[in-house]
C-alpha cells in the first residue's frame, strides 16, 4: 500500500473529554452475540488527486468465538480493513458496530478508550517496546487503562504470558533477548491484557518460521475458542483454511458471492473441509 496517501473525509483530531462509549444493544446471530457488524464500509484515500478505494463498501457480521481470516493479494485492502475495524483508521463511509460501539462516531478520546477496552492488536513485526521486559510489555495496556494495583497488573501479566506459552524465566527478558516466536507470543499476551472482545492480527506469522507460525495460529484459534473474535490478515492460504470465516479481498471488495460472507455458512464449510481431511 502506498503510504503517501491522504485519507478521505477523516474527522478532525481534536482531543475531547473522556466520555462513555456510545453503546447499542448487541444482537445475536445463531445463538451467539454479534461482535462486529459492517455495512457498506469504505475507506478511500486520495493520491495526487486520484481517489483510491482501499476498502469499497464491504459488509459482514462476525460473532463471538469466530476465527476469521482476511486473505488477498498485496494492496487488496485487507490491512486497511483491519485498521478500520480496530479504530486505527477512520472509515470514509458505511456503518461499523464493534461490540455494540458505533466506531464511526467516536471522538478521539473515545477512540483511545475503544482500542484499549475492545481491541487487541497483534502485528507482523510484534512492536513490543524494546526497553520493557516481556512482563512489562504485557502490563502496559493495563497501566494505560488504569484502575488496578501494580501487583494485580503483574499477576495478570504473568498469567497471560504463561497462557501464551512464555515460561516464567523469560518474563524478565527484554524483546531483544527473545526469539521471534516468543516475541509474538508476548504480543498476543499484550493484546489480551485488557480482555478485549476482538483480537486483530495483521500477518502475525509473517516474520516467523513455519513451525512457530503454526503455533501462533494455534494460540489464536484457542483464543477464538475461548470466545474472542479473532480476525487474522494473512497471505497464507493454509492459515485461511483454518478459519471459521474467510474473507477474500480484491481491489477493496470482498470477492465471491456478494460482499457479505455468512459466518455460519463459512463455518460449516470450514468444518466440512476439516472433516474431509480427516
Amino acid at each position: 500500500m502506498d503510504t503517501d496517501l491522504t485519507p478521505v473525509d477523516e474527522r478532525d483530531d481534536e482531543e475531547s473529554e473522556e466520555t462513555p462509549l456510545p453503546f447499542q444493544p448487541v444482537s445475536v446471530q445463531d445463538g451467539k452475540p454479534v461482535t462486529i457488524v459492517a455495512q457498506g464500509l469504505s475507506k478511500y484515500f486520495t493520491h495526487k488527486g486520484e481517489i483510491i478505494k482501499a476498502v469499497d463498501g464491504v459488509s459482514f457480521t462476525f460473532t463471538e468465538g469466530q476465527f476469521v481470516t482476511i486473505i488477498g493479494p498485496s494492496g487488496s485492502g485487507k490491512s486497511t480493513l483491519l485498521y478500520v475495524l480496530g479504530g486505527l483508521d477512520q472509515a470514509t463511509s458505511g456503518e461499523l458496530l464493534v461490540d455494540g460501539v458505533d466506531v464511526r462516531h467516536l471522538s478521539e478520546q473515545q477512540e483511545h478508550q475503544f482500542r484499549r477496552a475492545k481491541m487487541g492488536f497483534v502485528f507482523q513485526s510484534f512492536y513490543l517496546l524494546p526497553t520493557l521486559t516481556a512482563l512489562e510489555n504485557v502490563m502496559l495496556p493495563m497501566q494505560l487503562a488504569g484502575g488496578q494495583s501494580s501487583a494485580q497488573l503483574r499477576e495478570r501479566a504473568r498469567a497471560l504470558l504463561l497462557e501464551a506459552g512464555i515460561n516464567e524465566d523469560r518474563h524478565s527478558h527484554r524483546p531483544g533477548k527473545l526469539s521471534g516466536g516468543q516475541q509474538q507470543r508476548v504480543a498476543i499476551a499484550r493484546a489480551l491484557a485488557n480482555d478485549p472482545r476482538v483480537i486483530l492480527a495483521d500477518e502475525p506469522t509473517g516474520n516467523l518460521d513455519t513451525f512457530n507460525g503454526k503455533r501462533i495460529i494455534e494460540l489464536l484459534k484457542k483464543l477464538s475458542e475461548q470466545g474472542k473474535t479473532v480476525i487474522v490478515v494473512t497471505h497464507d492460504r493454509s492459515i485461511a483454511r483454518e478459519a471459521d470465516v474467510r474473507l477474500e479481498m480484491e481491489d477493496g471488495r470482498i470477492r465471491g458471492t456478494g460482499n457479505y460472507v455468512a459466518p455460519t455458512r463459512s463455518l460449516t464449510l470450514a468444518r466440512k473441509k476439516k472433516g474431509k481431511k480427516k
Partner: peptide, 16 residues
C-alpha cells in the same frame, strides 16, 4: 514513530 503508533494502537491517549 513506530513506538508512538504502537502505544496509540494499544490504547494510549495523546496526553499519555
Amino acid at each position: 514513530t513506530i513506538e508512538i503508533g504502537t502505544l496509540k494502537a494499544i490504547g494510549a491517549s495523546h496526553s499519555q
